[in-house]
Computed example of a mutant assay.
Amino acid sequence: MPNRTAAALLAATAASFLLVSCSSADSSTPAAAPAPAASADQVVAKLAGKIPTVKLVKTYTAEDDPNHLLGRPNGYTSKAAFADSRIPVDQLDGTAPDSTDRGGSVEVFADEAGAKARMDLVQAATKGLDPEYDYVAGPVLVRVSHLLTPDQAKEYESAVR
């Protein structure tokens, strides 16, 4: 039994040495900067590539952002609205062309914590009403209309992941 323990310890030590050696060899090369997050309209384009019923409706600016969060502290860095043609037109009376009810929106934050905080805020505000489907992937929050069925919403979840 002591020989097995010694052999296991030796193997673990060798593995640790290899990991340290590899990491120290890589430390001489500069680390690559993290890739910037895609803009909201780029995310919508990717969604449309996976869900053919999606269409970009609007890319917001700081001047026309209805939430007044674009570019502001703790706000998103970009926002876009999209429509999903599977939502029945008769359920959209009185909604603005860029309403989340018509499909959804994409909000891109500086980091995942910002996206999660916004999702928590939106979900708390809509609790007991007509809660939307919300999906976070890194710094991206995809908000999907409550007028879509759960199975349709799962397509967004898969596309976002």
Rank of each mutant, 00 (worst) to 15 (best):
T5R: 11
A6K: 11
A7I: 02
A7K: 05
A7R: 11
A8I: 09
A8P: 02
A8Y: 02
T13N: 05
A14V: 15
A14K: 04
A15T: 07
L18I: 11
L19C: 11
V20L: 14
C22K: 08
A25P: 02
D26I: 02
S27P: 00
S28D: 08
S28H: 06
S28V: 14
T29C: 02
T29S: 14
T29Q: 12
P30W: 05
A31F: 01
A32Y: 03
A33E: 10
P34F: 07
A35L: 12
A35M: 07
A35W: 02
A37H: 07
A37D: 07
S39L: 11
Q42V: 05
Q42M: 02
A45H: 06
A48E: 00
K50F: 04
I51F: 02
I51P: 01
P52C: 00
P52S: 13
P52M: 05
T53L: 13
V57F: 01
V57G: 00
V57W: 03
V57N: 04
K58N: 06
T59V: 14
Y60V: 03
E63G: 04
E63F: 06
D64A: 09
D64G: 07
P66C: 07
L70D: 08
G71P: 09
G71M: 10
R72C: 01
G75V: 02
Y76M: 06
Y76C: 06
T77R: 11
S78F: 11
K79E: 14
F82R: 01
D84I: 08
D84V: 08
D90P: 01
Q91S: 09
L92M: 13
G94Q: 13
G94W: 05
G94P: 12
T95R: 03
T95M: 07
A96L: 12
P97N: 14
P97Y: 11
D98K: 13
D98H: 13
S99E: 04
S99V: 08
S99Y: 03
T100A: 14
D101F: 14
G104H: 06
G104K: 03
S105A: 15
S105G: 14
F109C: 09
A110T: 09
E112Q: 15
E112P: 01
K116R: 15
K116N: 12
A117T: 09
V122T: 14
V122Q: 14
Q123T: 10
A124K: 14
A124L: 08
A125I: 01
A125Y: 09
K127E: 12
L129W: 03
P131C: 07
E132I: 08
D134T: 06
V136W: 01
V136P: 00
A137D: 12
P139V: 01
